[in-house]
Nucleic acid binder design. Structure first.
Lengths: 307, 307
DNA sequence: ATAAGTTGATACCTTCGCCGCATCGTCCGG
DNA sequence: CCGGACGATGCGGCGAAGGTATCAACTTAT
């Protein structure tokens, strides 16, 4: 008989790849942990962990089982949560992931709108970067994410929920802060620019690179969050290209300047002047009735076009 | 701490709406069942079943929890099933390397056959030359390669999956294009011949050299891919010896002529008339169940003998 | 080459939780 | 008012899980 404790034990070992540390994490000693894993393997009938006396590693079947284990444990938690929320009068719970900066621009209005149109639904917020949101959705910890493209479309479905312009964040004492017109790529020739990590912040990396094509900025540093970029700008380390909603961050010592064409590519496929997209993403095929209602409501909103 | 037994107990009671019958279904007596339900309700923190001494019924929260319980128990079963299927090799991903020209002759039928006989297995294709396939297998990037001999047998295991004849690719306006019989080595005396790089394309280099032993062709250029050789032939730079499947390449201005004995050595060790071998290779000792099944299936096919 | 240190598995013991039996308390029907 | 039905509770025994000590295999360092 498989037990949840065995599943939790397996997850700990699979993540640590070390029985001793896993046991510590589980607040138990190593011997019973070994026995639990053995027992789990016996009931499943499959070797999940390949272990010799030097190292522990997951088998192919173990990797798949780990994946299911995350879903399982997430479901255990959420089942209890759900019962408690309903007991408290709610009709549903939406576990919503969001990125820090998307929150500034549209999370407030989104939540207000949801609360008004679907009052029984309780929203539980989880701030995560895009990749962590995808992980969370995959593991069943989140129902919906607000994240930046690109996503694996075989795994996730998505819908654009917000579009905005790209603009420049400039130190208040910088020469560009005085320019009284939309900036062009050429304005950044030789200017220190805070850039984005091409992997962890791929979306803004590509937007930045695209806008600055043919310009020759001095790329200063590669960050992976908008907020970090703005703070570095405030510290005078250079300029950065950020979504327009970053204006609301209220960081002292930073001036925001418009870009020509809103920072977008006039020949590109995006909406003119609003190249920065935020998508709602969810697991393909895992549309609960609650999620369906939320998506329908989000579809009715006009979050990127109110101004 | 919630346990799966408690969830199963709850499901039984929720379905029977009667502790006695539920206990019977669970093959236990009624008292411990009552206690398990109480414990579950304590850990969840919600009354799931409203019971007076005459009847049992689900609360609103209990109905929602029942729903999640079904999902939970289904996931418990399916997690084990999935692990067993993968362990049995019925499901998995095969990362398959292949050379461009091998694809023409047999990759299509191979993939079709695999898809029919092992439908749970997803094949991801990587086009690479033989050496790069060996590298990929060594690094664990590929599970299986379709490549030309020779291989380091201490590191790789292999199996012949396809045999074909060697033939001559001749420019359409070349004198040899008119010859109405299988060509011999002597026919190439003094004729410009595109040859192969003895290192990067060792296999075809050796086949060519062996066939042309005692002949005196004018070796023109050493290429390392079949396709390049054929394109040079089309450009009129000379003749080349290529595997029979290159006929399907459809390059204009090239005529293919049979060779005596299919280009092979009648006293050699290979199959008469089909000296060009394609091997499936994999890392020695790294036979996953999935790979084992794929190899078994490949063994059942008759890919080199259908014509 | 040998000794010391790691790491997962095993042996043995203790403890704690679950099950079953017996019984209780309450409500309903006759 | 009494008997029956049903879920809750008290109690004793047993089995499963955890802890300590130790083993076996292997790596690393001196």
């Amino acid at each position: 008989m498989m037990t949840l404790d065995q599943v939790r034990a397996f997850v700990a070992v699979a993540e640590e790849l070390h029985f001793g540390r896993a046991a510590e994490r589980l607040r138990m000693t190593q011997p019973p942990l070994s026995r639990q894993i053995q027992k789990l393997e016996r009931t499943v009938g499959v070797t999940l962990l390949e272990r010799d006396n030097r190292k522990v590693e997951l088998t192919e079947a173990g990797r798949a089982f780990l994946d299911e284990s995350y879903r399982l444990l997430a479901l255990v938690d959420s089942a209890g949560d759900l019962a408690r929320r309903i007991d408290g009068g709610a009709t549903g719970t939406l576990r919503l992931g969001f990125t820090a900066v998307s929150a500034i621009g549209m999370l407030g209005p989104l939540l207000k709108d949801l609360d008004r149109s679907l009052p029984g639904i309780e929203v539980i917020l989880h701030e995560r970067v895009t990749a962590a949101q995808a992980d969370g959705i995959r593991r069943g910890e989140l129902d919906l994410g607000l994240a930046r493209p690109p996503f694996d479309t075989s795994e996730f479905e998505s819908r654009v929920v917000f579009r905005e312009a790209l603009c420049a964040a400039v130190p208040a004492d910088h020469a560009l802060a005085e320019v009284d017109r939309p900036l062009t790529a050429g304005d950044f020739d030789g200017v220190p620019v805070i850039s984005y990590n091409p992997v962890q912040s791929r979306y803004f990396h590509e937007l930045t690179v695209r806008f600055l094509t043919n310009a020759h900025p001095r790329v200063e540093q590669q960050v992976h969050q908008i907020l970090t970029a703005v703070l570095l700008v405030a510290a005078g380390r250079g300029c950065a290209l950020v979504p327009a909603s970053a204006r609301s961050l209220g960081v002292q010592g930073v001036v925001y300047k418009d870009l020509v064409d809103g920072g977008g590519d006039p020949d590109g496929s995006e909406v003119p002047g609003r190249p920065v997209e935020l998508h709602a993403i969810w697991a393909r095929g895992r549309r609960s009735p609650m999620l369906r209602r939320v998506l329908a409501q989000i579809g009715r909103m006009r979050l990127g076009e109110e101004e």
